[in-house]
Every structure is written in C-alpha cells, then in structure tokens.
C-alpha cells in the first residue's frame, strides 16, 4: 500500500463526495437560474431525436448496472442461487449493450455538436471540458467491461475487490488494499469516474437531479399567488422582510 494508493482510494473518494455534495447544494442555492438542460433541440431535431434517447437510456442503464454491481455484495446474489458465472454473463452482456447504446449515443451527439453550426456555436468551454471527462469515463468503462469479461484477456471478478472497496467508503472504513489489487483498467476508470463527479455540480450535468418524477402526481394546472410565501420567490431585501 503506497502513498498513492491511499491518496487515490481513500482520500480522493471523500474529496469527490465532498465536492459533489457541497458543490451541488451551492449551485442550487446560488444558481437556480443556470440549472437547466440547456437543450439545443431548437437548432436541430433530427439527429437529436435518435441520439439523445439512445445516450440517456444507455447511461441510465449503465447507472443501474453500477448500482447493482457495486452495491449488492456477491454473497447476496450467491444466496439467491445465481452462480457467479451466470451473474457474470448477464452483467457483461447487459453492460456491453448499455455501454454500446451510450457510446453510440454520445458519439452521435458529439458529431452533431461539432457539425451543426448553431449547436457548435452554443457550446461553451464548460461543455467541452465536460464532454472530455464524460467520454473518457465511458470509454474506460467499456474497456474495463471488456477486460473483466474475459472476452479480451483473462477476465476479472471485480466483485471481490472493487465492489467491497466501493462500499467500504460509505462505511467510512476504506479498504484501500482491496482496490489496490485490482487491475489498472479498473483504477483508471475509477479515477475518471470520480473526476466526472467532481466537475458534475459545475456543469450542465446537474440537470440529472431535476428528473421531474413529481410530475406524475401533481395536479395539471398549477396556481400560485404572487404573495411572498412561494418557494422560489425572491428573498426580501433587508428591512423589507414580512412581519409576523
């Protein structure tokens, strides 16, 4: 266990969490106005129509895959009678499909961003940086999946090292040694993953937190008073606060 191991697998995760949580709260409090998808569909619809759902559905599936793979201990799936091999085949299969969706989607989206004039003109430096990190994480993730699957190389059961390490972060007892053992591809992917969470609150990725599930239950027509009681209303100027 070197200093690097400690820095990467014990310190960086907590830095990530801190920046992610505090950054998001900060952004929400001070930049509600900037909190948006900043959709470019107005400029171009045809490519977007295919690419965007492809990417988003893919990435949501990837998210589910990560949650299952990292949070559910191997012993639990074993207990259900699902053998390690069977689990592996399912995970790799679904993972590759989801990964391919995501990759194909984002490739189209980036192509669109670069080639459709108005979309490119509306791309900020922030967006470009974000794309670099996002694409890196996705590519490395796919590579890792391929390597771990045994399709290329020997295969690797990350559920004995990476996953326990991941969970141990949340027990506040990071198992640095376990993670240090994992192959390099996992290391690089994990770092890329943490980096994307670090920049997350400061990019347009925040729109992911606004998934409007409340829409399913709220009444169709919203009425609001212009009175001072609304959430989202301006904070009164000093000396003008409501009395009583």
């Amino acid at each position: 266990m070197t200093t690097w191991d400690i820095l990467l697998w014990a310190v960086l995760p907590y830095v990530t969490i801190a920046v992610f949580v505090v950054g998001t709260i900060w952004r929400y409090r001070y930049d509600k106005f900037g909190w948006t998808t900043r959709s470019s569909q107005l400029y171009e619809g045809r490519l977007m129509r295919v690419a965007s759902p492809l990417f988003h559905i893919g990435i949501l599936a990837v998210l589910v895959g990560h949650v299952v793979g990292l949070l559910i201990p191997e012993s639990w799936t074993n207990a259900t009678g699902l053998s390690e091999d069977a689990y592996h085949v399912i995970a790799v299969g679904l993972g590759l499909v989801a990964g391919a969706f995501t990759l194909f989607g984002i490739a189209m989206l980036i192509y669109r961003r670069r080639t459709v004039g108005p979309v490119f003109a509306a791309t900020t430096r922030n967006d470009k940086t974000m794309y670099v990190f996002l694409v890196a994480a996705i590519l490395l993730g796919l590579l890792t999946t391929l390597l771990a699957s045994g399709l290329i190389g020997d295969g690797y059961n990350y559920r004995e090292t990476v996953s326990p390490w991941f969970r141990s972060i949340f027990y506040l007892n990071p198992q640095v040694v376990l993670m240090a053992e994992a192959p390099t591809s996992f290391h690089v992917h994990a770092i890329a993953g943490m980096l994307i969470f670090i920049i997350w609150p400061f990019t347009r990725l925040v729109h992911a937190f606004s998934a409007p599930v409340g829409y399913l239950v709220r009444p169709y027509v919203v009425y609001r008073s212009r009175g001072p009681h609304d959430a989202g209303a301006r904070i009164p100027r000093k000396g003008w606060e409501k009395v009583g």
Partner: peptide
Amino acid sequence: YKRVEDGIVLVDQDRCRGW
C-alpha cells in the same frame, strides 16, 4: 403557473429546467 390574483400565466425562471 397561473397567478391566483389575476390569472396571468408565467414561467418561474428559477424553476424551469428546460424540458
């Protein structure tokens, strides 16, 4: 939302997420 007092329909710029 629709304003209760006068029925004017408005967009809360702080809550809109660009959907």
